[in-house]
């Protein structure tokens, strides 16, 4: 474990908690892409199956359980508890255009042709594009509440910190996970446009982020 990965995991946790609390307290999921949240729940489900087969550390196990519980709880809030506030017409990204290529690629490009390994690879590829429905929804509605932009900021920052973690691990222990690194770079690139708007608009105190 290194400071970059720890900070990254904390940013990830903060992002997920920000979103959950926003929906729970405002009793509304307006402006939130349910599709992205379903994709994230799928990412955690396919990645954390080793919860039952291998024990890494208490931290690893606890964080996996927390991420899974919060991801499913958020999906529950969106599609069941506060479904009347869900903007399904704005959440129109065709997720099959993500799932099919990601599934195909995870069969083609993986470290081992074994069920757990392919599912893990699928989760890595899927995570890099899972935010697209949410970013697409924001471009469609042309705006995002500031709390939603803080959620996206921490979510984007988490994987950027993981890139630093991989640089650190490469130089200190020769660790290099090509699939995770390439996907992590792609994932972080998708946030660049948002980061620009976040720093120029939201942090200037304009509250809402309205797209040009």
């Amino acid at each position: 474990m290194n400071i970059f990965r720890l900070l990254g995991d904390m940013c990830h946790l903060v992002a997920i908690i920000i979103l959950f609390l926003k929906i729970w307290r405002s009793k509304s999921c307006a402006g939130i892409s349910g599709k992205s949240q379903v994709l994230f729940a799928l990412v955690f489900t396919t990645r954390y199956l080793d919860l039952f087969t291998s024990f890494i550390s208490v931290y690893n196990t606890v964080m996996k359980v927390v991420f899974l519980v919060l991801a499913y709880a958020t999906v529950y809030l969106i599609y069941l508890r506060f479904r009347s506030t869900y903007n399904s017409e704005s959440d129109s990204f065709r997720v099959e255009f993500l799932l099919v290529p990601v599934a195909g690629l995870s069969f083609l490009e993986n470290y081992a042709f074994a069920p757990l390994e392919i599912l893990w690879t699928f989760s890595i590829y899927l995570e890099s594009v899972a935010i697209l429905p949410q970013l697409f929804m924001i471009t469609k509605t042309g705006e995002a509440e500031s709390i939603t932009t803080h959620y996206l900021f921490f979510l984007g920052l988490y994987r950027a910190l993981y890139l630093a973690n991989w640089v650190w691990r490469y130089h200190t222990e020769g660790f290099f996970d090509q699939i995770a690194v390439v996907s992590g770079v792609v994932q972080t690139i998708f946030y660049c446009d948002f980061f620009y708007l976040y720093f120029t608009k939201v942090l200037r105190g304009s509250g809402k982020m309205t797209l040009p």
Partner: peptide, 10 residues
């Protein structure tokens, strides 16, 4: 043994 074998990251 391949790079992803040791999956100690979240």
């Amino acid at each position: 043994d391949y790079p992803g074998k040791k999956k100690d990251e979240l």
